[in-house]
Design a protein around this nucleic acid. Structure first.
Length: 522
RNA sequence: GCCCUCGUAGCUCAGGGGACCAGAGCGCUUCCGUCCUAAGGAAGGCGUCGCAGGUUCGAGUCCUGCCGAGGGCACCA
């Protein structure tokens, strides 16, 4: 269409710029399945009526009549309606593709890194960390399914005084003393102290911090494992300081971006407010580490794109990091930072607000114990990452359709169940008999799945999967309720079983991409 | 004071500049039970899309300002 349009309607001088998206999905089914709005966009530059342009373009469009109907509608839309026979035939196609249904080679093997969680090993993961963990993991799954070469990375901040402070906090706990100034005071310190004492270590042992980190990190891996999350790579901050730091500083200095004042070393942002890179005591700031780290990702390791999942409390860092990348001649658009907003936990009438900074709140582990990993994942995915959310514990535990997780999983279980019941049926499927509104609606929704994945990959918006899943589940329940699958009518039974297979595959793939179980029985 | 995210139905939230786009679920009021799991389905009411301008053939959607909520603005992490 984009290529053909000029020759069909004649090109003016200068030529108009065509929009990137030419065919879009209609939002109202009475207008068909797809629409072309090009005539409306071309009307002004061509100084012609949009309806006339639409008619000419529509007349020139060549689509097999078995595939779709084309219509022109005021004020200048070209609407394409998929033919029933074609829709029905796609049921076989979905079944034949099976597990690959929804996957694509959109990314063409481009290397992408998703870095997420990256919590400091000085305390167990909070529930709010879980949100970033799920968002990052599902973003990675979506990109993998779309043909990107994805690496999942966990960055550990193993330098600096936090580890030392952590060790001092453990020592204080072992001695029954209060935590040091700015130290850690959570109940888990007692657990660590108990383990260390069991191993005959005293408060005077020199490496309490390291031992504590080991304990915490084990627990973090364990929590993530229960959530179904693994990382491919652990990156230590300390590895940035074997020369890479100096090399990067040399580059920045050469670019005239480094200045020393007040005994510290600063990055010249180009605005009035410079940023400290190395503190007066000689230690690097997080900003400096982040510059070294991201230059490493892009230049040394060659990732084309990097997705960082950060908590909302780090958003101040985004602008200056991107500015530093730009200065280093790395296109900042290659870095996407997903800001994950705060989570509060609602238990009955009580709401607990989570605060990372304050280090208080509900631990990820308690929530895994209480509602299970599937509910944690699905509920986090039912909200876009950039909106603050409330997690309703009672709802997550409810075993009914009020709970969107059960609603979706139950739809899958129903299909699996009916497929077992129909396993002995011997009829030959007559797909043209899938002609009720419920069946055709389900087919249309199923066929959207590959687009949903692509859109989620392009926008990096994992929540789109959950909303789609909810739609599929609703359509499945309607189908199940209105179209009895296994009957004496053998060709219809076979056709409906095939549709049930296609729907089950779609639901299973969608739930699978979210890391949520798709049970056959409930 | 500056920056970021959000502001849509009583509640929790979707809405890639398009035409019934004003939505879904929950909650509320009803209805559906020989029969594949009623852990379900069907019907109904619910709104000045925070406010005011602007861009556009067309604006919850983009821009500006204001108001409100939350989070950032450390030689903290």
């Amino acid at each position: 269409m984009r290529e053909a349009a000029p020759s069909i309607i004649g090109w003016p001088d200068p030529a108009p710029v065509l929009p990137a998206v030419i065919v879009e999905r209609t939002q109202n089914p009475t207008h068909g399945d797809y629409s072309v709005t090009l005539p409306l966009k071309l009307a002004k530059p061509l100084r012609r009526s949009p309806m006339a342009i639409a008619s000419e373009l529509a007349a020139a469009m060549r689509l097999p009549s078995s595939f779709a109907r084309i219509a022109v509608a005021a004020p200048g839309f070209i609407n394409v309606t998929l033919e029933r026979g074609w829709l029905q035939s796609q049921v076989d196609f979905v079944v034949s593709v099976g597990e690959g249904w929804g996957r694509s080679d959109l990314g063409q093997g481009v290397p992408v890194q998703v870095e997420f969680v990256s919590a400091n090993p000085t305390g167990p993961l909070l529930f709010s960390h879980g949100r970033g963990a799920v968002v990052g993991d599902v973003a990675a799954r979506i990109l993998e399914a779309s043909g990107f070469a994805v690496q999942r990375e966990y960055y550990i901040n193993d330098k600096g005084k936090q580890i030392r402070l952590f060790g001092e906090s453990i020592r204080a706990r072992m001695l029954g003393e209060p935590a040091p100034e700015g130290g850690y005071s959570g109940a888990y310190l007692s657990d660590i102290a108990a383990v260390l004492e069991d191993n005959a270590l005293s408060a005077s042992a020199p490496n309490l911090g390291e031992l504590g980190v080991e304990w915490v990190q084990e627990r973090i891996w364990d929590d993530l494992k229960r959530l179904g999350i693994r990382h491919d790579q652990v990156f230590l901050e300390s590895s940035l300081y074997g020369g890479w730091d100096e090399d990067t500083m040399k580059r920045l200095t050469g670019l005239g971006r480094v200045v020393e004042k007040d005994g510290a070393i600063w990055f010249r942002t180009g605005t009035e407010k410079d940023e400290v890179l190395f503190k007066r005591d000689g230690y690097p700031t997080y900003f400096a580490s982040d510059i070294f780290y991201h230059r490493d990702k892009f230049e040394r390791r060659g990732f084309q794109r990097v997705i960082d999942v950060w908590g909302a409390d780090h958003q101040g860092q985004v602008g200056r990091l991107k500015e530093a990348l730009r200065v280093l001649d790395i296109d900042p658009a290659r870095l996407t930072v997903l800001m994950v907003q705060l989570v509060s936990v609602k238990r009955g009438a009580e709401t607990v607000r989570m605060s990372r900074r304050a280090g208080v709140g509900v631990s990820l582990r308690e929530m895994l114990d209480e509602v299970g990993p599937d509910a944690v994942r699905y509920f986090f995915l039912l909200r876009s990452a950039d909106a603050q959310m409330e997690f309703d514990v009672e709802l997550a535990k409810t075993q009914s359709g009020d709970n969107p997780l059960y609603y979706a999983q139950y739809a899958h279980a129903r299909l699996a169940n009916v497929l077992v019941l129909g396993a002995g049926s011997t009829g030959v499927a007559a797909l043209d008999r899938l002609d009720s509104e419920w069946e055709l609606d389900l087919i249309r929704i199923i066929l959207r799945w590959p687009d949903i994945v692509k859109e989620a990959a392009q926008a990096i918006e994992p929540h789109r999967l959950a909303f789609y899943t909810d739609e599929v589940a609703a359509s499945v329940h309607r189908f199940y309720k209105n179209c009895r699958v296994v009957t004496d009518d053998l060709t219809l039974t076979a056709a409906r079983l095939q549709l049930a297979r296609a729907a089950r595959i779609t639901l299973a793939n969608a739930l699978g991409m979210m890391g949520v179980a798709a049970p056959d029985r409930m």
